[in-house]
Design a protein around this nucleic acid. Structure first.
Length: 836
RNA sequence: GGACGGGUAGCUUAGGUUGGCUGGAGCACCCGGCUGAUAACCGGGAGGUCGCAGGUUCAAAUCCUGCCUCGUCCA
């Protein structure tokens, strides 16, 4: 350079060096002039420097960049370097073209010392910053590379005509042999690549048509504020930020396929004309017959127009570009109605659009281009509500792509678990705007839990309905007249339906569907249907059975309608079979028959049933072994559910009780900490006395300050009071309530017999099922009981015989079972049976 | 390099805006139970440094700062 020193610049793209036309430095950055005093310890790669050579670079980066021993001669701000000229690395590759600033140092704000040398190589045509700077300071703007990525002839005799990325290494060699290279270094950095082929891309300045979006920036922001975004932070954040940093829209593409850019230019006077219709083209065409029905390339390229400029008789030629395909997308909202040539009424009815929905990766696609076109052309918002969906990722959280091979083939799931389960899984797996890590097991679970349960509820209903020739149209059964269990499931369904609707409106599809699934599995299947089985076994005609069938019919049809928008197939089958009509033609349910008190009561009943099961487990009392008595302490208003509850928790006699003390006693435990301090060596004596004393009187005395033991007065702080169940009782308070269930845990011969009968029934029923017997089929049953079993009483044996539909039955207590009998153990006693 | 979002049990996740009781669930696992529609269900158990480090506070998964890491878009 016009200085004795060499200036050290840095690049990650050697192929842009022939195009170098300037160097940028930070005016405020401190630079150092150093002299090489000695060789380095070792040296990797090409490049180097002579002893005594002077080098200029940013002071902060001396240690990172230089390998030689050096001395710093002076330091100075970058502004002192501005204006100095240097010799091009590839003389002749770029023509000076009258530029005053070519191959000089210029100042630029973007230069930092976070990496490189603090001196930025600038090749105007191959980088955005470079181009902007070059235009500003007047560097020559010439390509050294053609559109195929090859160096133009005249760049350098060993580079001409070669693909630039293949030349990087040779360029380093050339610099090395000319003593122009200081150092090469491996450096990891991001670089854009073609998403399809994986080839590295070249930044390349080229002519384009733009839509001046910057002119409507404020309007875009204003309209965006009127859109209801889900989630809201996309509108203000990601999309809002994009609009705030809006760039002009590069609208032209050098392609063949696509919507032709409708711009014609006169070669004589440069007048430009944008055509708006085929009619207009025919009118202006030099030869109207060239305007064909197909307005695409190549036909449209043949059309020449009469120049529209005053006094010019030139023939205008079409710009050969096509439009960015996203422009077509942005026009969809009016183009679908063929507006402006037709469909204006349709457009008015449907614009702005109520709702659009696309992946979050479409921020710059649909979301932006629709708004861009509606703003520039219609000065209006385009859509009122917009849901930005999260992407579907693979199990490792990577975006699915065919080239990576990490895609899940949806057909695998459609064929295995069905489209319904796949769809329901995808909706319930997370909020729609969150990325979804697709989990195949989740689809499996949804299939088993949601759709098999739905189908089984339907099967249960339809099997018994068929047996009874049930026809919902024929019989009439007002909801108000049905038993409370029926009114409860109907109320509950309607409450869930109302929430479901509200959650859909609030974008919470995932929560809505999870709640509905919970209703189906827990409320309908595991409570209503389970509690109703016996009602349908009734072989006569009863009002109760009729009510149950009507209720199942009503609940299933409504449920189908709610599920249909998400999972349309199985519910359509069910709905058609139940009503003869497709679910997709049915009305959306409107909530009715809601009864909050009834729902609350049933919730309490279910919590009590749960408490009953829990208390049995904790007290080691088998579910099938009945309890003689149970009491509900603090319950009111649920008497009508006592039959259900007593059956559910297997209690023979369930009653309301107000006095919990009847089942509980207190225990007094010493507080060793306070007592120890108080009694010292007398503590064992006091503790022994405490253990002996009657807890009730003791506690009474302590509270009234008249408890003196071994000369010490005991205060409430000295003891801990615990309430425990009296011998033979077990208790538990139901969740979210003040109601306590107390069970009598006493075991009697009668109860053991009943429990034994239930065990046998259960095993035989399982056997019936294993043998795949028809529900109505009869069997022959033989039972042998080992001697250590409790006695099976006559009434209980009769119960077994009728429950399992045995037409003849033999009971042998204490006898020897023959080979081939089924065997099981209850409390260590063997039981054998045979079903024929 | 910029914008935005995420990181909670082996896995999938709720909660986070408004700090507060023992951080909930599901799958899988272990033990027990229910079941004449169910591949469903119920009870118990084991499994958590709520990415890391600081800060604010009587108190932080939650608020603040920095960092690490993953994702998407842009460059």
């Amino acid at each position: 350079m016009d200085d004795d020193a060499k200036i050290l610049a840095w690049t990650t793209t050697p192929w842009t060096l022939p195009g170098n036309v300037g160097l940028a430095v930070g005016p405020g950055v401190t630079y150092a002039r150093v002299r090489v005093t000695d060789s380095p310890q070792g040296w990797d790669g090409r490049g180097g420097a002579e002893i005594g050579e002077e080098i200029i670079l940013a002071e902060d980066l001396l240690g990172d960049v230089l390998r030689h021993q050096i001395e710093v001669i002076e330091t100075f701000p970058g502004s002192e370097l501005v204006g100095k000229a240097y010799d091009p690395l590839f003389p002749g590759a770029v023509d000076r073209d009258g530029s005053e600033t070519a191959w000089t140092v210029v100042g630029a704000d973007f230069v930092t010392t976070t990496d490189g040398t603090g001196v930025v190589h600038t090749a105007v045509m191959y980088g955005e910053d470079d181009y902007i700077l070059g235009m500003e300071v007047g560097f020559p703007a010439q390509h050294t590379v053609d559109m195929d990525g090859r160096f133009f002839p005249g760049t350098h005799n060993s580079l001409d005509g070669r693909y630039v990325k293949d030349c990087d290494d040779d360029i380093i060699d050339l610099l090395h042999y000319d003593n122009l290279l200081y150092r090469e270094k491996m450096y990891v950095h991001d670089y854009p690549h073609c998403w399809r082929t994986g080839h590295p891309l070249l930044y390349y300045a080229m002519d384009s048509w733009f839509v001046r979006m910057t002119a409507v920036k404020e309007r875009l922001l204003e309209f965006n504020d009127q859109v209801e975004w889900a989630p809201a932070n996309i509108g203000t954040g990601r999309f809002g930020e994009w609009l705030r940093n809006i760039k002009d829209w590069a609208i032209s593409r050098e392609r063949f396929w696509g919507t032709p850019l409708p711009v014609w230019i006169c070669p004589d006077c440069d007048h430009q004309h944008c055509a708006g219709s085929r009619d207009e083209l025919r009118e202006l065409a030099v030869d109207a017959s060239k305007v064909t029905e197909d307005p695409h390339r190549p036909f449209v390229d043949e059309v020449l127009l009469h120049c529209q400029a005053d006094g010019c008789s030139g023939e205008m030629v079409r710009e050969t570009y096509v439009m960015d395909c996203w422009f077509d997308s942005g026009c969809a909202f009016f183009a679908q109605w063929h507006h402006p040539f037709a469909g204006t009424e349709k457009l008015e009815q449907n614009f702005p659009i109520d709702y659009i929905c696309e992946g979050v990766d479409q921020t710059r696609g649909w979301f932006y281009t629709l708004l861009a076109v509606s703003t520039t052309v219609f000065d209006s918002i385009c859509y009122k509500r917009c849901l930005s969906l999260g992407l579907i990722l693979d199990a490792e959280g990577k975006k699915m792509s065919k080239s990576k091979g990490n895609i899940v083939d949806p057909w695998d799931h459609f064929n295995r678990e069905g489209a319904d389960a796949t769809r329901w899984y995808m909706v319930t797996a997370g909020a729609p705007w969150n990325p979804l890590k697709f989990d195949s097991n989740g689809v499996r679970d949804t299939y088993g839990k949601m759709f098999l349960t739905l189908w089984n509820c339907y099967k249960f209903h339809t099997d018994y309905a068929a047996l009874d020739n049930f026809d919902p149209e024929v019989s009439d059964c007002p909801v108000a007249s049905r038993p409370s269990l029926d009114r409860w499931i109907i109320s509950k369904l309607n409450s869930v339906a109302a929430d479901y609707h509200a959650q859909f409106e609030g974008w919470d599809f995932h929560k809505a569907c999870r709640d509905l699934e919970d209703f189906l599995v827990n409320d309908l299947s595991n409570w209503y249907v389970r509690r109703s089985r016996r009602r349908l076994w009734d072989e006569g005609d009863s009002a109760d059975k009729m009510a149950c069938q009507h209720t199942l019919h009503d609940v299933l049809t409504t449920l189908c309608r709610l599920i249909a928008p998400v999972s349309p197939f199985m519910v359509d089958e069910i709905h058609r079979n139940l009503t003869g009509e497709s679910v997709h033609l049915a009305d959306w349910p409107t909530p009715q028959h809601q009864d909050a008190d009834l729902e609350a009561s049933m919730q309490l009943v279910r919590n009590l049933a749960e408490a009953g099961r829990k208390v049995r487990v904790m007290n080691d009392h088998r579910q099938r072994l009945p309890c003689q008595s149970g009491w509900l302490v603090g319950a009111s208003g649920i008497d009508e559910f006592y039959p259900i509850l007593s059956e559910e928790i297997n209690v023979l006699n369930l009653q309301t009780e107000t006095d919990l003390d009847r089942f509980q006693r207190i225990e007094i435990a010493p507080n060793r900490k306070t007592l120890g301090r108080k009694c010292r060596q007398d503590l064992p004596k006091v503790m022994a006395a405490l253990a002996e004393a009657d807890p009730d009187t003791l506690w009474d005395d302590i509270q009234n300050s008249r408890c003196i033991i071994a000369g010490f007065e005991l205060e409430p702080i000295d003891v801990e009071v615990k309430r425990v169940e009296r011998e033979g009782f077990a208790a538990m308070t139901a969740e979210d309530s003040d109601v306590t269930l107390v069970l009598d845990m006493t075991v009697t011969e009668e109860l053991l017999s009943m429990g034994l009968a239930r065990e046998i029934i259960r095993r035989v029923q399982q056997k019936r099922k294993d043998l795949d017997l028809d529900v109505e089929a009869s069997i022959s049953l033989s039972v042998w009981l080992d001697e250590n079993n409790p006695e099976l009483l006559g009434g209980d044996w009769d119960h077994v015989v009728s429950e399992v539909r045995a037409k003849d039955a033999i009971l042998d207590q204490g006898g020897q079972a023959p080979d081939g009998a089924e065997t099981f153990d209850i409390d260590g006693a063997g039981i054998h049976f045979k079903v024929e």
